[in-house]
Design a protein around this nucleic acid. Structure first.
Ligand SMILES: [Mn+2]
Ligand SMILES: [Mn+2]
Ligand SMILES: [Zn+2]
Ligand SMILES: [Zn+2]
Lengths: 174, 174
DNA sequence: CCCGTAATCTGGACATTGTCCAGTATTGGA
DNA sequence: TCCAATACTGGACAATGTCCAGATTACGGG
């Protein structure tokens, strides 16, 4: 997608944001664009394949800078290192396969700024809602038809939600 | 809350789930109940204050086991170590202060099984939606009235979402 | 075009959060 | 009470970041 992007375009973009232009930064931007949802480590590898070498710190510094400038979005899926992507400011979410870890973009079910209206905001000033959908991708579903499914995800009476309440219940039944 | 719970109740609960009863497990269950959203490390400290000592491995093993048994829920807030809580199977979400990290429970804006219906499921079999709301808690808001707010969170034309597209735009304007 | 300074990059040490493993201790049933 | 399965311990190791001091590079001004 950005494979066809000229370096001069990236230079322009950086200058517009008052960011010094370096070979490392250009390479990292290209890497982020060409491999969405990659980790810092993966991006470092990609960059090394192009410009020979880069320090770990330069990778982290640059990604952090680009995130600050809203040129890159950092997502931190539970149980994984941070991942980075090109697609910013559109509030999209992510769908991750429990089995193989593959990650795809997903638009929000609710609207442009999804879920930003929580029932009770507890006095917080909410500015972002991050949503991660968990499931099994088509490939993994095909591989194992029915994984002896746990996780009924069904509701339980509110009175049994906490450990303490559930054990009281257990005692009665005993 | 569970401070008043008798050990024998916890024993009962574990037995019902075919889990061996040990002093470490009981202490960890108590710790999780009494300090919601604590990290493994914090729980280990709490447990040590009660039973003297426990290995890090026992803490992780037990928490993992309790999570498997649906007696404890593990949440992994972006940028933080995993946290654990008592309140399971009710699909509630979390609201985290960007400034001080305080975490509160929040019920879903949408319904009992929130957001589980994504626009396009990409063929995935979705079983859970995890939502993290980000913001500033009342205390932090009071401390700093307006933090030179960035993050407009406003929509941008779809044509400007990706780096590549935005730089093209930049070029025109040049 | 050259210079000086600020910004950036480098490489190595260090921190945090977890997992692996082999040996020892405890649990719970026979 | 005894045994086998299970759990716990302590130390090594791994992954993901951050800190820091010194070397290098970028870029605006002369
Ligand atoms: Mn994405
Ligand atoms: Mn909670
Ligand atoms: Zn998969
Ligand atoms: Zn706060």
């Amino acid at each position: 997608m950005t494979n066809t992007t000229d370096d001069s375009d990236l230079v322009l973009l950086l200058r517009r944001h008052r960011v010094q232009v370096t070979a490392q930064r250009l390479a990292i931007m290209r890497a982020v664009s060409s491999r969405p949802h990659a980790t810092a480590d993966e991006l470092a590898d990609d960059v090394r394949a192009v410009i020979g070498s880069i320090s770990r710190q330069a990778v982290y510094d640059t990604l952090g800078l680009l995130v600050d400038k809203h040129l890159v979005r950092r997502i931190q899926p539970p149980g994984s290192a941070a991942r980075f992507e090109d697609r910013v400011d559109d509030n999209h979410h992510h769908l991750i396969c429990r089995t193989c870890g593959s990650t795809v973009d997903i638009d929000c079910a609710v609207g442009a700024v999804p879920c930003l209206t929580a029932h009770d905001d507890h006095g917080f000033e909410i500015d972002e809602a991050e949503v991660v959908y968990w499931g099994r991708c088509p490939a993994c579903r095909a591989a194992t038809p029915e994984p002896a499914s746990q996780r009924p995800a069904s509701e339980r009476p509110a009175s049994e939600r906490h450990m303490s309440e559930r054990l009281a219940h257990a005692k009665e039944q005993q």
